[in-house]
């Protein structure tokens, strides 16, 4: 065996392990995407439920009133755009709406929707709201 073939073997062996590592890593990246695959019908029901909730919870002037947990002040928000992505969270789902405050600042408002118990398939309730608190959402998703 020559010195060259020895050195190549030395190079290829860790490379093979590196390949396997990347494949597993990529699989790990792709598989959650597949796992999060939400049917269109469910997505439509969720979006409809959220749209109805925001509409019902809004005041006559269309503002979505929110109580700031830190300052204990009512904050008037105005829906500006809905995000298409639906993120499963166990049995629940996260949906997001971009809203504007009185100063025109954009805020991401995340809603947690849960299937209404005993109401049959496709009926959801909004059970929690997170205003401009993406960190909490990320931590929750990581733990899940």
């Amino acid at each position: 065996m020559t010195a060259g073939s020895k050195s190549n073997k030395c190079v290829f062996k860790p490379m093979a392990w590196l390949c396997l590592f990347f494949i597993l890593l990529t699989g790990q990246l792709i598989s959650p995407a597949s796992a999060r695959d939400v049917p269109v019908e469910t997505a439509a029901r969720l979006q409809a439920t959220l749209s109805k909730f925001v509409s019902d919870a809004s005041a006559k002037d269309g503002s979505f009133v929110y109580l700031n947990r830190e300052t204990a002040q009512r904050v008037m928000l105005y829906p500006a755009g809905k995000h298409p992505m639906v993120i499963p969270f166990g049995e629940d789902y996260y949906l997001c709406v971009t809203m504007l405050d009185a100063q025109g600042n954009k805020l991401d408002v995340d809603f947690l929707l849960r299937p209404k118990s005993g109401a049959g398939e496709g009926i959801f309730l909004v059970v929690d709201t997170f205003v401009d608190n993406r960190n909490l959402l990320h931590r929750a998703l990581k733990r899940n």
Partner: peptide, 29 residues
């Protein structure tokens, strides 16, 4: 290749979510 496949899956998911959003809004409004 794997990232491209992932990207394609992600795009498909987004498309379905967009379709769901359209249907949900339309149905309510």
């Amino acid at each position: 290749g794997l990232v491209t496949v992932g990207f394609h899956l992600y795009r498909s998911q987004v498309s379905r979510s967009e379709a769901g959003l359209q249907v949900g809004i339309v149905a309510v409004e």
